[in-house]
Amino acid sequence: MSAPVLEIKGLKTQFQTRQGLVKAVDGADLALGHRETLGVVGESGCGKSVTALSILRLLPQPAGRIAGGRIIFNDRDLVRVSRAEIRRIRGNEISMIFQEPMTSLNPVYTVGFQIQEVIRKHRQMNKGEARTEAARMLGLVGIPEPRARLNDYPHQMSGGMRQRVMIAMALSCHPQIMIADEPTTALDVTIQAQILDLIGRLKEEIGMSVFLITHDLGVVAEICRHVAVMYAGKVVESAEVRELFAHPAHPYTVGLFESLPKIGGRGGALRPIPGVVPGLFNLPPGCAFQERCFKAEPRCRQEPPLRAAGADHMVRCWLPGE
C-alpha cells in the first residue's frame, strides 16, 4: 500500500443506551492509501457506519462517544482536534455521502443552495461564483441541464439523481478523502452500477481516496484496491482485493464468499452463514464469531491474535499459520 492518508488505530466507539453500553466499534484498525479505494465489508450491524461517522465525529449525540484509539489524517489525530478544526475538515478535506439519498438532502432548500452552501463555507467565492461552480459540479456528476437543475428541490428528483447531487456536494471542495457509506444500497441495480462508475471516475479525476462501505463483495471486487472485513466492531481480516478473494483466511470471510452467488459459476447451493450477528451486549469472551464458526475450538474463547496470512494480508483468528 502507498503511504496511507488515513489511519485508524484501535478505534473504540461506544453508545450509552438504556440497556447499557454498546461497544459498536471495539478496537478497529484500518488504513486508507493515497488515491486508493478501500472497501469495508461486513453484515449489517457490524460497525461499518459507526466507524465512518467516527472519522468525522458525526456520531449521534449525546449517546455516541469515541472511547479510545486514534484516527490519523495528515499528521493530525481527528479524535483530538478541536471542534473548529474538525468543521474545517468536514466537507472540505474529508467529505461523506450516505446510504439514504431520499432523506439526506434538506427538503426545504433547492439543491443549488445546498451545494453552494458547502462551497461558500470552505472556498473563498461570492454567490455568483459559487453558483457557477455548483452547476459545474452537477454537470460533472452527469446531471443534464445543470444550470436549470440548481433551482430544483430534492423531491423533484429520483433517488439516483439525489445521490448524484450528494456526490456533487461532497466533491465540490475537492476533498482528499470521500467516505461513501453504502452509497448504492438504496438504489435500483442499474442505477447502482452508474453511481459506482461515477465514483470511480471522479476519484481519478479529483485524485482522492475513497473509503467505501458496502455489504456487497461484488462491488468490492469491481472498484476496490484493498478490502477490510468487519465483524462485531473489529476488523477481522484485511488484504488486497485479489489476495483476499484468492485466499480468504478468516472463517467469517469464507462464509461471506459462500453466501454469494457465483457469477457464471459452478452452480451449487448458496450457503448462508448460520446464525446472526450476536447482540453487542452479550458477546462471548474471545472471538465474537465463535458461535457461528464451523471451525471453532476451545482456544477461541481467548482473544485471537492479529497475524499475517500472506503479503500485506492480516487476519484476526487462531487458525491460520498452522
Partner: peptide, 11 residues
C-alpha cells in the same frame, strides 16, 4: 439525515 448532512458539510 439531512441534519447529519449539514454537519458533514462543516457548517
Amino acid at each position: 439525515d439531512y441534519v447529519r448532512t449539514a454537519r458533514a458539510k462543516g457548517l
